[in-house]
Design a protein around this nucleic acid. Structure first.
Length: 232
DNA sequence: GCGTAGATCGTCT
DNA sequence: GACGATCTACGCT
């Protein structure tokens, strides 16, 4: 009944796609078994102008080659000697931009996901796919899926409920303190208050804001390039 | 609840 | 030879 989004869905600026992917479903077929999750947290990486991006300053190596493909395919990389991270490539093949899938809500195949994660006891909220490394482990995603299309095959994206703006929390990205000015850019998107989000979301209204860690509390300047512009 | 350390290796300098 | 777009266990409050 629901088909993959058209390729033009992906061939837009990364921050637009990052927001649009919230609520979409991710379907993984492995060993003939179907695993399904709903995307609840994403981060945009803008490519050349973005110091946190693997394509910063036009960097291009065998590892990140998939970033320089047209939007709509996967970029999977290996970090910290033990974890994989899944990205959705965005824009056209000159940009090097992508969206990191940070967290998802398990919908189907939870037993298999728990098994992939090495869990014996019942999973607590966020324990199966709350975090980029956990998500990849739960869905058995590794470098073998680097470059595959999200429209066909073993890893698909399907449309989901559109998340209204007031349900979306926006803040700086996680784990990129080395990125200078880009570290403060508001490129992390999450469904506000969702239990599977990898870190706390801010209060619903600015008036209710209290000192707290998480999306929306970083004091650094929130400035990032507008789509199509460049920055030194 | 919070902060910190250690794991572990592909990749690029 | 250094360093991660991370996760977990552990110690302390």
């Amino acid at each position: 009944v629901s088909r993959p989004p058209p390729l033009r869905f992906y061939r837009r600026p990364a921050e637009v796609v990052a927001r649009a992917l919230l609520g979409c479903r991710l379907v993984r077929v492995v060993d003939g078994r179907r695993l399904e999750v709903r995307i609840v947290e994403t981060e945009a990486y803008l490519g050349q102008p973005d110091r946190a991006s693997h394509a910063w300053a036009g960097r291009r190596t065998p590892r990140n080659e998939s970033l320089y493909r047209p939007g709509g395919c996967a970029y999977v990389y290996f970090v910290y000697g033990m974890h994989h991270c899944l990205n959705v490539v965005t824009g056209d093949e000159t940009v090097g931009s992508a969206v990191l899938i940070r967290a998802a809500e398990p919908l189907a195949g939870l037993e298999d996901m728990a098994s992939h994660r090495g869990l014996t006891r019942p999973p607590r909220p966020g324990e199966l796919a709350g975090g980029p490394g956990r998500l990849c482990q739960a869905l058995a995603i590794d470098r073998r899926l680097d470059g595959v299309s999200f429209s066909t095959g073993a890893l698909r994206i399907l449309p989901g409920a559109r998340i209204p703006a007031h349900r979306i929390a926006i803040g700086p990205r996680i784990g990129i303190d080395y990125a200078g000015e880009a570290a403060g850019w508001p490129l992390r998107f999450a469904i506000r208050g969702h239990p599977d989000v990898s870190r706390p979301a801010p209060p619903a209204t600015p008036a209710a804001r209290r000192p707290r860690r998480g999306v929306g509390t970083d004091p650094r300047p929130a400035v990032c390039p507008r789509p199509g512009t460049r920055r030194p």
